[in-house]
Write a protein that binds this DNA or RNA. Structure first.
Lengths: 80, 80
DNA sequence: TATTTTTATGCGATTTAGCGCATAATTCAA
DNA sequence: TTGAATTATGCGCTAAATCGCATAAAAATA
C-alpha cells in the first residue's frame, strides 16, 4: 500500500502514523534518524521548509520510502 | 508507473527526466513552480538540503506526486 | 487526580537554501 | 564550426532549518 503525499502536512501525517504503528516516540525516531525530537515534531506537523534529507532520513528509519508517480488519480480531498 | 526516490539524487533524476519529457527548460519549470532556474538546477543535481516545499512545487508543476510506501521491494541497486 | 511520559515551544548560534544578478561552462542547432 | 540556448556556478543578502539546551504544554497512565 502507498499513501499520497502532496503536501508537507500529508507527509507529516504519514510519518506520525508510521511512527505510532512502530510504537516509537519522537525521541526514539530522532535517534534512529539522526535528528532531534524537536525536529521530528516540526516535520510531523507539516513544516514545509523541512530539508529533503531530513524527510528521507525519517522515512528510512521507519522502513518507508518515497515514490514519484503521475498525478493521475483523484485524491480523496478532490472528490469532496 | 512509479519511480523509486530514496535519495535526493533519485528525486533529481526523476524530475529531470519528467521535465525533458515535457520538453521544458529549467527556466520554464522554474516559472511554473515559482523557483529560479538555478534552484531547479540544484534540485536536479540532487541537493540534499532542498526544501520539501520546493520539491513538491516542482513535482506539481510536472504533474507528478509523491507516495509514501513500505520499503518492501528491493531496489535495482540492491540486486547488483 | 497525581505523576510520568511525550510533544511542543523558546532562545542563541551556526549553517545553508533560495533570492537577485552576473557569467562561466556546456549543449544544441543552424 | 559557430552562434544561440541551456545549464551550472559564484557573490552578497535574508530567512529559516536544525542544533544544543531548557521548559512549558499536553497526553498517557497509575
Amino acid at each position: 500500500m502507498s499513501e499520497l503525499a502532496r503536501s508537507p502536512e500529508q507527509i507529516g501525517n504519514a510519518i506520525r502514523r508510521a511512527r505510532k504503528k512502530h510504537g516509537m516516540s519522537q525521541s526514539e525516531l530522532g535517534e534512529k534518524s539522526g535528528l532531534r525530537q524537536e525536529t521530528i515534531s516540526l516535520i510531523e506537523n507539516g513544516n514545509p521548509a523541512a530539508k529533503l534529507e531530513s524527510i528521507l532520513a525519517v522515512l528510512t528509519a521507519l522502513g518507508l520510502e518515497l515514490n514519484v508517480s503521475e498525478r493521475s488519480k483523484l485524491s480523496l480531498e478532490e472528490l469532496l
